[in-house]
Amino acid sequence: MVCLSGLSAYVKEPVGVGTKPPKGAEVLFDGSREMLDAKWTYWEGPRLAAKLPIKWAIEKDPAGRGTVMNTNDPAAAGGKYGSADIVTKKAFRDFRLHIEFFITKPGGNSGVYLQNRYEIQVLDGDTTSHGMAAVINETPSPYFAYNGVGKWNAYDITFRAARFKDGKRVEKAMLTMYFNGQKVHTNQGINQVWGGPNSGIDGGNDGGKGITDTPGGLKLQAEGHDVLYRNIWIKELDLKEPKTDF
């Protein structure tokens, strides 16, 4: 905190494309095949059709230095979500996440799943509540912040897991999110898992409303499109109060 003339000015955390991991963060993808294989695996959901090793290609960054991963797994051809999604081997509860994506062609489709439950949509051309950067089916799409096809985009998210007492959910999951440096969701509660059992953890429980207290990994969706990811890191948190704003 910096004080100026008796006023307090809080310096926010860096956000946006190119943001580097802070002290205490874990890098989940640095562009290398070695890290992809070490920290990720296929999600063993009911529709899994892919077999290890992960078939997501490591490619040259089309608009930067280094290498990136391409979600276009052959097993997901035709948009068969859940057939070749990848998830971190490590599970998480509360965290700060940074992830960058690049859609190569109009209509490109993927998704970022927090705790392998709650999808933050990656879908070019969709401005609805099912569209780009929406907490899927729960918020409007902040499409105004999207950099567009052929450019890198960044999600910066602070997420707090649902809380339970005596086996019952007493506080919903919550997040605050910046999209390319613009705050687009603030202390947004999340009601349920959408998409059914092929979507993620708890998707098949009571129509997605049967949320459990099981931590989950970060999942990335394969939909048969050339959507790229890079610069993924996470910092585990312990958020005592139901607040995620940053």
Rank of each mutant, 00 (worst) to 15 (best):
P142I: 05
R93A: 13
A38L: 10
L175Y: 00
G208M: 05
A145N: 06
L175M: 14
A76E: 02
F144D: 15
L114K: 00
N153K: 06
D226P: 01
I54D: 08
A161V: 09
A134P: 05
W152S: 03
G82E: 07
L175E: 06
K209G: 09
N205W: 03
P22T: 10
L237K: 11
G66C: 09
E44T: 15
V193I: 13
P53G: 11
E241T: 15
D94L: 10
G189S: 12
A75N: 13
T41E: 15
A173L: 08
K168D: 11
K55V: 06
A63V: 08
E34K: 15
I211H: 00
D166L: 13
T214P: 01
L237I: 06
Y10G: 10
K209H: 14
N137K: 13
N180F: 03
N153H: 09
N137R: 14
D37T: 01
D238P: 02
K168H: 13
L36C: 08
I234F: 01
I234W: 02
I86A: 00
W43K: 07
N187C: 11
R33W: 13
V68D: 01
G150P: 05
S5Q: 14
T71Q: 11
L7P: 00
G207R: 11
I86T: 06
Y178Q: 02
S32E: 10
D37G: 09
K12H: 12
V227H: 02
K39I: 01
M174G: 02
E26S: 14
N109V: 04
V2G: 05
A38T: 08
V27K: 04
E59A: 01
A9K: 11
G148M: 10
G210I: 11
L36D: 06
G66P: 01
W152A: 01
G189N: 06
R47I: 12
G16Y: 05
R65Y: 07
I232G: 04
S141M: 04
A50Y: 00
W194S: 11
T88I: 09
M69Q: 08
K168T: 15
D238S: 15
D226W: 02
N191K: 13
A50G: 02
R163P: 03
A77K: 15
G167V: 13
W40A: 00
I190F: 03
K51L: 10
P74Y: 09
Q121D: 10
M174P: 00
Q221M: 14
G78R: 04
T41L: 12
Q182W: 13
Q188F: 07
L220C: 04
A76L: 05
V122W: 04
G31C: 04
V11I: 15
K12V: 12
P21I: 04
A63P: 03
T128Q: 07
P142W: 00
T212Q: 12
A133K: 05
T186I: 15
P14Q: 13
I211R: 00
T186L: 12
G111A: 13
R96F: 01
K80E: 12
G216I: 03
G217N: 07
D124G: 07
Y229M: 08
V27Y: 04
F102V: 03
K55E: 10
G111F: 07
V170G: 08
W43N: 07
S199M: 09
H98A: 12
Y10H: 13
V2C: 10
W40C: 04
R117P: 02
K183S: 02
G125T: 12
K209I: 04
D85E: 07
